[in-house]
Design a protein around this nucleic acid. Structure first.
Lengths: 211, 211, 211, 211
DNA sequence: AATGAATGAGAGTTCATTCAT
DNA sequence: GATGAATGAACTCTCATTCAT
C-alpha cells in the first residue's frame, strides 16, 4: 500500500512535470516555431534548467513529438466518442467534425502548434510518427473513408470521386479553417463555424451539379 | 547611350545571377526546408561563394522572400491572364484555378518551396510580405471575392456564406490539393485534377442542399 | 560494547559498499575509460543512486584513485610476500615479477584499469598519489633498486648502467607486457610468460656483450 | 602561371594555418590531455576563433589524429632513412633506434602528445588509424620483424623467443624510455641514452644466459 | 564584383555534483 | 544513510554574416 502510494506519488510528480514541460514547449514553439524555439527559452518558460528536460525527453525532436501526440490523442478520443453516439455514417463524419472544431476552440494552442511549430510539413510528420509506432491517424482515416464509402453506396455521397480523395477534401477544408479559427478566435461562434464548414463540405460531397 | 547600354548589360548580368541564386536556393530549400538549408550549401549549388549572396540579398530571410515572390508573381500573372480571357465571374474563378493548377504542374518546385521551406506559416508570411510592400495577394484576393459576390447576386453561388469565407474555402482546397499533387506528381493528369477539384469546390459554393 | 559492535557492523557495511562501488567503477572505467565513464553509469552498475557515491568518495577523481590504490596495495603485498620468501637479491626481483604476473593474471581488470582508464599518464598519477600521501610505490622502488645494487656488487648485474635505470628498464618491460597479456589473456600460460620476460630482462640486466 | 602561383599561395597559407593549429593543439593537449583540452583553449592558443578549427579539421578527434600522424610520419621517415644507410639487419634496428631517439630529443612534444594526450590507449589508436587507412606502423613493424628473423637465422639473436615478441620487447623499452627522456630532457645526452638502451635491449635480444 | 576564410554567438546536449526528501 | 531529480556550467560543433583581399 505504502509502496504503491509512494510510486503513485512519484508518478504523479513525474506526470505533472512532464505536463508543465509540454506546456512550456507549446508556448514557446507556438510563439517562435520549432527551429527558432531554443531549449533555454523553453526551460525558462517552464521554470527549470535546460538540462532537466533531458530527464523527461530524449531530445528536442521527441519533446515536440510528445507535445503533438498528446494533443492528437485527445482530439481523436473526442472524435471517436462523438462518432460512437450516432449510427448514420454521414452523421458520424459530421459529428467527428463537431468534435474537432470543439477541441480546436478549447485548445487553441494545439492548432497553433500543429501549424506554426512543425519542424516538417505535416505529411512528413505523420510518417515520422508512424515510424515510432503511433499509427492512430492512419487508422482513423481508414475508418472515415469506410463511412464515406457507405455514403456512396447509399447514393448520398457523390461516387464520381474516390473516397480517399473525398477524405483529403474534408481534411483540407477542416485543417485550413481550424488554422483560421485558431488565429482569430472568437470571431465566430463554434456553432456558426460548424454550419459554415459543413455547408461547404457537404456541398462538395454531394456535388450534384456543376456551376 | 553607351552608358545606358553598359548599365543594361550589368543589369542583365545582375538579373541572371539573381536568377541562378534563386534557383539554387529553391533546390536546397525544397530538399532541406528553410532552417536546415545553409547558405554554404546554397552557394555551392549556385556555384559561387557564400559571401556573394549578400551582394544580392540582404540576408537569408530576404532570399527566401524573393524566391517566393518570384513564383507568386508568375502564378498571379498566369491567373490574371486567364481571367481576362473570359467574361463570366464564376468562369473567371474557374479559369484562375486552371491557371494555378497548370503552374503548379509546370513548377513543382514552387509548391514544395511554399509548403516545405516556409520559415513561418503562410499567413504570417503574407503579413511579412505586405510589410515590405508586396501586396499583390491581397489585391488578387479582393478581385476574386468581387467575382464571388457577383455570383451570389446572380443566384449562382450560395448566399448563406459570406464571400470572404467562400474565398477561404477555395484557397483551402486548392492549396491543400496542390501540395498533394506536387508531392505525388503524375498521379493524375492536370485535366482530371482540375475536374476533381472543381467538382468539390463548385459543390461547396453551390451548396444547395445539406446531406 | 554494543556500541563498538554496532560500529563494527556499520564499518563492515561501509566497507562492503565501498568494495561494490569500486568494482562497479572498475567495470565501467575499463570498458569506457575514465573520462567517458559517467557517474550515472557506474551507479547503475553498482545498483545504487549516483548521489550515494559522494558519501563514500569526495569526487570522481578520488574514486579512481581509491580504485587504483586498492589494486596496487594487493599487488605490492603479493610482491613483498614472495620477496620475503627468498634470500638472494636477484631472486627477490625475480619473485617479485612472478607475483606481479600472477596478480595480473588473476586480476585482468587491474591492468586494464591502469592502462585504459587512467585520467592522466601513470607518472603524473604516481605524483598525485604521492601528494595525497600514498608513497608505497616509491618505497617499493627504492627496495628493488637496493637489490639491484647488491647484484651489481656481486658482479651478477651489469654495472655500466645505474641501478635506477635498470629499474626503469624492468618496469618498462613488465608494464608493457602486462598490458599485452591482459589485452590477450590466455594466449600464453603464466609460466611461459614469466620465462619469456625473465629471459629478456635478465639478458638486459646481465648485458655481457653487445651484438 | 598566375593561377598556379595563386593556388600555391593559398595552399601555403592553408598549410601554415594547419601547422599553427596543430602546434596549438599539441601545446594544450600536452598540458591537459586530450579530454581536458577544450577547443576554446586550443583556439585561444592558436589565436583564432574556435569555429575556425572546423574549417581545417572535421572534429576534435581528427585534429588529434592529424597531430599524431604528422609526428609519426616524420619519425618513420627518419627511421627508414637511417635503416637504408646500413646493410646489416641488426644494425638496421639499431639505426632505427638512433633515429627514433634523435627525433624524440628534437621533438619533445611528440612523445608527450603520444603519452599524455592520447584519447585511447596506443594499441586502440593504431587500430583507429588503420581504419582510416594509415597503416604505416604495421608496415614498419613487419619490416623490423623481418630483420629480427634474419638475426635469428644468423644466430645473432636468441631464437627461443618469437620475433614478434622480441619486437614487443624493443617497443616496450624504447617507448617507456622515450617517455622518461622527454619528461626529463637533457638529463642525459642522446649518445649516452642510446648506449644505455642499446645495452639493455641487445642484452635481452642476445639472451645467452639467465642470471 | 566576387571571394571565402574567419568570426563568434549560440545551438543542443551531457554530466559531475548537490540537496531536499 | 540513501536517494535521484535537478542543476548549470561547460562541452563540441554549426552557420549566418562580415570584410580584407
Amino acid at each position: 500500500m505504502t509502496a504503491t502510494k509512494k510510486k503513485t506519488l512519484r508518478e504523479r510528480r513525474h506526470a505533472a512535470t512532464t505536463e508543465a514541460m509540454l506546456e512550456a514547449a507549446e508556448h514557446v514553439m507556438v510563439a517562435q516555431g520549432y527551429d527558432q524555439a531554443t531549449m533555454q527559452q523553453i526551460a525558462e518558460e517552464a521554470g527549470c534548467a535546460a538540462g532537466t528536460f533531458y530527464l523527461y525527453f530524449k531530445n528536442k525532436q521527441e519533446l515536440f513529438e510528445a507535445l503533438l501526440v498528446r494533443y492528437l490523442e485527445a482530439l481523436y478520443d473526442g472524435c471517436e466518442a462523438r462518432m460512437a453516439a450516432v449510427e448514420d455514417p454521414i452523421e458520424k463524419i459530421r459529428q467527428s467534425m463537431v468534435a474537432a472544431l470543439e477541441y480546436c476552440h478549447d485548445h487553441t494552442g494545439f492548432v497553433q502548434v500543429a501549424y506554426k511549430a512543425m519542424p516538417v510539413r505535416h505529411r512528413a510528420l505523420y510518417e515520422r510518427l508512424a515510424e515510432i509506432g503511433w499509427t492512430r491517424p492512419q487508422q482513423f482515416r481508414r475508418r472515415v473513408e469506410g463511412y464515406l464509402r457507405q455514403g456512396q453506396k447509399q447514393g448520398r455521397v457523390r461516387s464520381d470521386v474516390p473516397a480517399d480523395i473525398l477524405h483529403d477534401f474534408i481534411d483540407a477544408v477542416i485543417f485550413s479553417f481550424m488554422e483560421m479559427f485558431s488565429a482569430a478566435p472568437g470571431r465566430r461562434g463554434a456553432r456558426e463555424q460548424l454550419d459554415l464548414l459543413w455547408g461547404l463540405i457537404s456541398g462538395g460531397l454531394l456535388g450534384k451539379e456543376v456551376l
